[in-house]
Design a protein around this nucleic acid. Sequence first.
DNA 1: AAAAAATGGTTGACGTCATCAATTAAAAAG
DNA 2: CTTTTTAATTGATGACGTCAACCATTTTTT
Lengths: 142, 142
Amino acid sequence: MEQNSISDISRSLIEIAWHFGPKGLNGECCEDLTMPEFIALDKVSTTSNCAVQDVGYSLGFTKSGATRIVNRLKKKGYVHKVKSHEDARICCVEITESGERVLASANSRYLKQFHVIAAKMPEHSLTDTVKVLTAMANALKG
Amino acid sequence: MEQNSISDISRSLIEIAWHFGPKGLNGECCEDLTMPEFIALDKVSTTSNCAVQDVGYSLGFTKSGATRIVNRLKKKGYVHKVKSHEDARICCVEITESGERVLASANSRYLKQFHVIAAKMPEHSLTDTVKVLTAMANALKG
DNA sequence: AAAAAATGGTTGACGTCATCAATTAAAAAG
DNA sequence: CTTTTTAATTGATGACGTCAACCATTTTTT
């Protein structure tokens, strides 16, 4: 039997997921934003007339979980909720100025972290690394 | 101002972290194993005389959290705890047969997922992708 | 050798967070 | 106009990790 039963690729993927995931970056993406909140806020900022459930869908949450995360963002002042004019059931979530700021801040923290890591990969160019990661992310969506 | 404030690299990293992270793979790594439990079990399997705190360290948990995750794995029958002979304070965590099995199973699930994704990246060879990810994981450790 | 400090581990109280099931309100379908 | 579907919310619940206090053992100090 081999040294251990976990392959290098699995371990690498986990390492990356763990580092850049909910527990990485000191457990918080930026300021008082958790990772799911970051993703939710990004979804809100890039979706026009973003319904509460749209947020939940992008996270793989139930609609109940969606309500809760949106309310958390609202309490923090990063979004506000507006009733839709077309359909009074729908609640449109919109990002605030403060939300934009924290999103940009989280982004720069991610970027900085990434460059620190990329600098420690002498055998790979930054652009190649970026290309692979981007392609991978696209493959995940498609 | 640009379309949105989040860069592509950040978004890609998050996408990958989210997909292969705690919420990915249907919320569970394998069988009844959560992501942190998977990492903990891997740590146990690759560390001889693995103390409870060693597990905690690899996850960035406090020693209290380490105790809890080890106990959870124990309850599931994937590890057992043995008092160290050299130091009676230390509690060595050892993987069981059942633990080895579930670890291998989790690994194959990760591997399968990865190959599905890699197959959707026509412009990158599998080996190149693996190389970049491995280098990145190594950079994270160092 | 005795006392004090440090170390490994555990436990109770707590806060956070997402789910489930039930509920309300509004729109669509019949 | 009644029935069904859909969007959102809420109370109860369970999982999980932290903090602080604690016990036991080892190491350091004097």
